[in-house]
Simulated assay, not measured.
Amino acid sequence: MNTNYILSNLGFKESFKILANDFPHLYPGRVTEQARETYKVATEEGEIVAEVSGKFRYESIDVSDFPIVGDFVLLDRLNDENGNAQIQHLLERESELARRASGASNERQLMAANIDKVLICMSVNEDFNIARAERYLTLAWNSGATPVFVLTKTDISNELDSKLAQLEEISFGVDILLTNTVEKDGYLSLLKYIKDNETVVLIGSSGVGKSSLVNALLGNKFLKTNGLRNDGKGKHTTTQRKLFKISSGGIIIDTPGIREVGLNSVNLIDTFSDIYDLALYCKFKDCTHGNEPGCAIQNAIEKGNLSRKRFFNFQKLEREASYEGLNNKTIERNKLDRMFKNVGGLKKARKTLKKQNKRSY
């Protein structure tokens, strides 16, 4: 694979050049791969191994201050012949894809930086899951990049039309691409979404075919791929994030499969715009969308205009977002407060209705 880069062809646009001009003694590069303590960085003279300087490490407050794949960094030199180059500065990110770290931790985990599009890959076999798709979509919208759904392995699905219809119900204008890597041109629809000098990141569960798509776009089997397990799901392949330049001019970041789509610091408005729009028509401003009279959301559910399952998924994500950064005791207290608030809201609504009924007589 070619490791001689022209940075302007790696997304190093004018806004980054202006930031780099404040450090004329340093050399720009883009992080293409990250290991524990070291990074591979693409520079004008090739790909080198680098590490953060002691000053950089000392001044970093949070783990998100450290470089990730896709970041533009400034180095003390353009080669690593005399040891690893030193990363002295990180240029401000224009976008970043982040999720909550898996497990009990509420730590924010960065996945990729300076991306233009997020390709949400879902296979149309047993991996297909609408609730997970809504989570991925929320991650994508909150990154600052444009989401695109990519349905993979369409050649093995017997329910493609049904699954496509389900996805269209939650996508709200987000493009949906159908791909496979079996047919000769099964992946070419992706190319128009990977424009010259733009960066796209592929996300999805383990084994949905991300690495196969990257290999097809690169024109060779650069990444290892695995077949299907006995349950029809793909095997985990990619173990770390990598950035690639493809011959058509775009830049791809491949990521490991996501087992747990934890949301952190999220805004749900783009993903659930239909629910937010409905809430504007509720009778009471503090409507909890439970049993209050005049609830536009419950009315839409009863009429079949809104899926009860979709509203349930929205409430689940909303609660998850509201508990971010709280300890277990505080979370339990907030759950109790929410329960009693709902009861209070219902009592208040009934009281208001009684007053209105009295005035009508």
Score class of each variant (00 low, 15 high):
24 P>E: 11
271 T>L: 03
190 L>N: 01
319 R>V: 10
123 S>P: 06
280 L>H: 15
241 R>A: 14
310 R>W: 10
250 G>E: 06
143 S>D: 06
2 N>M: 14
205 S>F: 04
303 K>C: 10
145 A>C: 05
85 A>T: 04
162 S>A: 11
209 G>H: 06
206 S>A: 10
332 E>A: 14
64 S>P: 00
200 V>P: 00
141 W>Q: 02
183 E>Y: 14
164 L>G: 12
320 E>Q: 08
43 T>F: 12
225 T>I: 02
215 N>T: 04
122 M>C: 10
275 I>P: 10
13 K>A: 13
212 S>C: 05
322 S>K: 03
164 L>N: 11
36 R>F: 14
221 K>Q: 13
163 K>W: 01
134 E>H: 09
322 S>F: 07
184 K>E: 08
12 F>A: 00
324 E>L: 05
309 K>F: 11
166 Q>T: 01
136 Y>K: 00
293 P>N: 12
178 L>M: 02
315 Q>F: 11
159 E>T: 13
54 G>W: 00
103 G>F: 04
77 R>F: 04
347 K>D: 13
199 T>W: 12
309 K>R: 04
46 G>S: 04
343 V>S: 07
331 I>G: 11
39 Y>H: 03
335 K>P: 09
112 A>L: 04
188 L>H: 14
352 T>M: 13
10 L>K: 05
311 F>A: 12
185 D>G: 07
145 A>P: 08
342 N>M: 12
250 G>L: 03
171 S>I: 06
50 A>I: 02
341 K>E: 12
137 L>T: 01
347 K>M: 15
316 K>C: 12
156 I>Q: 10
143 S>A: 08
2 N>I: 14
261 V>I: 12
293 P>I: 09
205 S>G: 09
230 N>W: 07
9 N>G: 09
20 A>M: 04
